[in-house]
């Protein structure tokens, strides 16, 4: 049974719902603050998937397609609920002195990602930081770093040149690094503390 055939009629789609609700719910629980929110996200993701099922390309796995929709739904909810503005990436880029030497906060080496993510505060910080990137930067982080695709894939999907994709990715990653430093135990400078 091919992907599109499974999704074209409601009965097939119902099977997809039964098959993938558990997986999506597990992810939604990591990305929301309550069980009710997790349920709402999964429901909204399936509804969106159902409405756009004609756009599903048989080349992708159904699970990956649904996962992407769910992540976008969860991040969208974060943005709608918070009053935090979109991040100004300009202010989050690394700085260098006139000789091209880096100015970097000192601090201990960060713990392993798995260990850091055991704390709910860290999971929230990571989710919120990605949610508040400007749209084009968020998209490229999702394609490159979350889905693990190449820069060429990302450029094609976003209809931008590869060099634009590279610049965008680097700025987004540098910003995330700065935004997540408190979660890694790196003390910010005075200006950071005002943020």
């Amino acid at each position: 049974m091919t992907g599109p055939a499974r999704l074209s009629d409601p009965k097939r789609f119902a099977e997809v719902v039964k098959q993938y609700t558990g997986r999506l719910l597990a992810t939604a629980r990591r990305l929301t603050d309550s069980e009710a929110d997790a349920h709402d996200c999964v429901q909204e993701a399936f509804l969106l998937a159902y409405r756009s099922r004609s756009q599903f390309e048989g080349r992708a796995k159904i699970s990956s397609w649904l996962h992407r929709i769910l992540v976008n739904v969860a991040l969208e909810r974060v943005r709608k609920r918070s009053r935090r503005p979109e991040e100004a990436l300009e202010d989050l880029q690394p700085t260098f002195d006139e000789r091209g030497c880096r100015v970097e906060s000192q601090g201990p080496a960060p713990a392993e990602a798995q260990v850091l993510l055991e704390r709910a505060e860290t999971r929230t910080a990571v989710r919120d930081a990605i949610a508040h990137l400007p749209e084009g930067h968020r998209e490229i982080v999702l394609i490159r770093d979350i889905e693990g695709k190449t820069t060429a894939d990302a450029a094609r999907e976003l209809s931008i040149t590869q060099s634009a994709a590279r610049v965008r990715l680097h700025r987004a990653r540098a910003a995330l690094k700065r935004l997540l430093e408190p979660a890694m135990g790196v003390a910010g400078d005075k200006e950071d503390n005002k943020r």
Binding site: L31, C101, A113, V126, R127, I146, L180, E181, A183, M184
Partner: peptide, 24 residues
């Protein structure tokens, strides 16, 4: 001594995003 912690944190930020949001 500046680039080493920078790169460690840069990598960790990528891993944090991946581990939290990637398809299980």
């Amino acid at each position: 001594a500046e680039c080493r912690p920078y790169i460690a944190r840069y990598r960790r930020a990528i891993e944090l995003g991946h581990k939290l949001l990637a398809e299980p």
